[in-house]
Design a protein around this nucleic acid. Structure first.
Lengths: 134, 134
DNA sequence: TGAAACCTTCACATAGGTGTGATGGTCAAG
DNA sequence: CTTGACCATCACACCTATGTGAAGGTTTCA
């Protein structure tokens, strides 16, 4: 498929797909006329990239760990230098810490919402104009 | 305490502390001479801000939800407009999604590392710089 | 043949968090 | 007083992920 199609399938703008390529995250083939040609697996790949970006990892890091997370990697993980493994381990641990922080914050939000909901239940009075009792 | 101390305690640069203030996330008192005066609770507060920022929330949103997560909030959560609650709920859900993505990626990394470790165990030949056995 | 829809590259712009330096005030110790 | 450590404000700079537009080639369809 060409870039427009992939853009539609992934939600990433064409610009962004070119950017990911520029950053070395994806390496599409080229047709004779210069058009980029993407095979189907790029859909998953791009989604994964976006997930990692959204997770706060910079492209520089994603570029390095992505080969490890490749689709049906099961059997043929060939290139695993010790540095690679160290990096991956470190990033995984960082990710875990980050996850913990997020969970704590999420739980604090939930807790607050629960409390407010409980409070709400006790004050049947209309909500809007009157700030809310308590 | 003054800004330098808080900076030391939180790891946030002075610049950043002023930035958070500029964004309305913290509102320290001022001494007669203009110096910012922070009370102890700002340490937790700043840490929480950094956690949320790291979580990908923009200051604009943090500013809004922070009052809800305030420390001993237990009893006196006074100002909870419906919009506020909706925003908080939405952000919490976004956060949950984000957490899920992170967990999936983290698990993929762990899985890969486990596989490689298993593979390693089978090839006793010291690889490169004798990384570190398993 | 020409218009529409797609593609290319290049380059400048923006937004958010953060670094850094200039310039100057405050305060405590020698 | 002066020195040094702290503080203040202001402003310019950076990085990274993105948007956007210009100028031009290709393909498709009428």
């Amino acid at each position: 498929m060409r870039i427009g199609e992939l853009s539609r399938l992934t939600g990433a703008s064409r610009r962004l797909l070119r950017y990911y390529e520029e950053q070395g995250l994806i390496v599409p083939d080229r047709r004779a006329n210069g058009y980029r040609e993407y095979d189907d697996r790029y859909v998953d790949r791009v989604n994964q990239i976006r997930g990692l970006l959204d997770a706060g990892l910079p492209t520089r890091i994603i570029k390095q760990i992505l080969p490890c997370l490749d689709k049906p990697r099961s059997i043929h993980f060939p290139d695993a230098t010790p540095e690679m493994l160290a990096l991956l381990t470190a990033e995984r641990d960082r990710l875990t810490e980050r996850i913990d922080v997020l969970i704590r914050n999420r739980d604090a939000m939930s807790e607050y919402l629960t409390e407010v909901a409980g409070c709400r239940a006790l004050t049947p009075g209309g909500s809007h104009g009157t700030p809310n009792s308590v």
